[in-house]
Design a protein around this nucleic acid. Structure first.
Length: 506
DNA sequence: AAAGTGGACAACCGCGATGGT
DNA sequence: TACCATCGCGGTTGTCCACTT
């Protein structure tokens, strides 16, 4: 990772050129300068803040003569001049933390930055976006399978060990890759673009009801949807076929490729279960809600997905996938959330997901407009207390309902969406986040996972930096060590490429 | 060596939230 | 209550640099 280039070169170069706007740069509108900051400007701003403190940024121009708008001053200060800013590459722990935070809160850069002392939201955002672009370009899932798996487990979904699978493997030390089936070709894949747009809680697709568990569901296009709602995190190596027709509500699967995809079923307790630090509710008679395997490409001649080439931002999603809210699948108006949610949601809206039958919990939508989906639909709150999937804000479930032609909302979805919005304090986020992480079993000194490998090799594997966010009690050592990196790596690898090192694909 | 491409980063823009009057 | 100023956040754009072709 390269750092400090612009600061050292751009600003200084500009300073060297003089006070005027750099060539090619439009003179400041309204007399205010734009563009790269010069060293002189930095000095002025520093001095000002030293004297007057932070805040009242619009006064900076008046009081200091700095020809910058207050907004620009604030940004410059926050991102570059503020003391205690940590410069340099993200440490493995930081990267892992970002990963987790993003999985939980989505594109809430400021909140993420609050858990990364010395890091700015802009820095994190840039880091994430560039990485996302890279992963999307290569058609890789955003999160390591193990993380996705644990995330789901943490929210009460029982994930039977993918006995025959090579990905999303369980916790035990990973055995050597099974001789067969052979790993798929790198291309395996999933055609570009792979996007994980904003989506509502995956729990949207999961309602808990005993009756639902036994509901007989006529499956939609058999070609695309199997009985099992197995879903495949990561979209990786082919694996053994799904277990025979488990009871489920949704059939979300469709063939990923001629090769049998890897499966694992998600099951969910019938009754509400208290949040447990443990991953597996282990309740008897779990309801099985299978998500179905998926790949990220739309089935030919089926549902037209609003996928876009790249998706660094939710805005693009909103625009391309549902800005109008009136065109078929362009109904998602949610803002970004934890992308693990999005993964599942994406599957649902992308056409891979088919709800075979309206569940008991699924009550007909009364409105179809956002404003009318208040989350009061139905009265079944079984799922409400049992899952706190980080939800999408203002999400609606049109995709699901549209898929089968019915106009339904899923009870609990909206409620969960609200719950998400209510996750106010970062403390809640982080505590929840760490709930999903098993107790550390590794030494504090963590070896970065293979998938972490930096492209540039600049990443330090040195002593882990412990997040000193006392409020959160964050310990990145714990975080980092709580994951079985080696295992994740195995699961995560879709090819010789790893999380950060896409050389095998690019 | 030059052109093309992508990554990394800084900065800007638009919008919503908040607080004061 | 309405209006305004300010602040903060998230998304986007622009620029520079390194690497590849």
């Amino acid at each position: 990772m390269k750092r400090g280039r612009a600061e050292a070169s751009s600003a200084d170069a500009a300073a060297a050129k003089g006070a005027g706007p750099p060539p090619g740069q439009a003179p400041a509108t309204a007399g205010l300068k734009k563009g790269p900051w010069t060293a002189a400007e930095d000095a002025i701003l520093r001095e000002y803040v030293k004297k007057h403190g932070e805040g009242n940024w619009n006064a900076v121009q008046k009081n200091s003569g700095l020809n910058r708008c207050g907004k620009s001053c604030r940004l410059r200060w926050a991102n570059h001049l503020r003391p205690n800013l940590k410069k340099g590459a993200f440490t493995p722990e930081e990267e892992l933390l970002i990963l987790h935070l993003h999985a939980h809160v989505g594109n809430k850069w400021a909140r993420m930055a609050a858990h990364l002392p010395g890091r700015t939201d802009n820095e994190i955002k840039n880091y994430w976006n560039t990485r996302m672009k890279r992963r999307q370009r290569t058609g890789l899932p955003l999160y390591p399978p193990e993380m996705q798996r644990q995330f789901l487990l943490r929210h009460g979904y029982h994930l039977p060990p993918p006995a025959t699978s090579s990905s999303a493997s369980p916790d035990p030390p990973s055995p050597p890759p099974p001789p067969s089936p052979p790993p798929p070709p790198p291309a395996l894949a999933f055609p570009q673009p792979t996007t994980f747009p904003s989506s509502p809680s995956p729990t949207a697709a999961f309602s808990s009801s005993p009756s639902a568990a036994t509901a007989s569901i006529p499956l939609l296009p058999q070609n695309y949807f199997s009985n099992g709602l197995f879903f495949q995190f990561p979209l990786s190596s082919p694996v053994s076929p799904p277990p025979p027709a488990p009871p489920q509500q949704f059939s979300l699967s469709r063939p990923v490729s001629p090769a049998t995809p890897q499966w694992f079923a998600l099951s969910r307790p019938v009754s509400p279960t208290p949040q447990s630090p443990l991953f597996q509710p282990q309740l008897p008679q779990p309801l099985r809600y299978n998500l179905g395997s998926f790949d990220v490409s739309p089935p030919p001649s089926f549902v037209q997905m609003p996928f876009v080439g790249e998706l660094p931002s939710s805005q693009m999603l909103g625009e391309t996938g549902g800005g109008s809210g009136s065109d078929g699948f362009g109904l998602l108006r949610s803002s970004s959330t934890g992308l693990l949610d999005d993964v599942i949601r994406d599957v649902q809206r992308g056409g891979e997901v088919r709800r075979a039958d309206p569940l008991p919990e699924l009550v007909p939508s009364t409105g179809g407009q956002d404003g009318k989906r208040d989350g009061h639909l139905g009265g079944n709150d079984v799922s409400e207390g049992s899952s706190i999937f980080s939800p999408a804000q203002g999400s609606v479930l049109e995709p699901l309902s549209m898929l089968d032609g019915s106009d339904c909302s899923i009870n609990g979805i909206e409620m969960r969406s609200k719950a998400t919005n209510e996750i106010g304090p970062a403390h809640d986020d982080i505590s929840m986040l760490f709930d999903m992480i098993p107790a550390p079993t590794l030494p504090a000194t963590t070896v970065a996972p293979d998938w972490y490998n930096s492209d540039s090799g600049e990443i330090s594997n040195g002593p882990s930096s412990v997040v000193t966010d006392d409020d959160m009690g964050l310990d990145m050592h714990q975080l980092a060590s709580s994951y079985t990196f080696a295992h994740m790596n195995q699961d995560w690898d879709i090819s010789p490429c790893t999380w950060s090192d896409m050389s095998g694909i690019c």
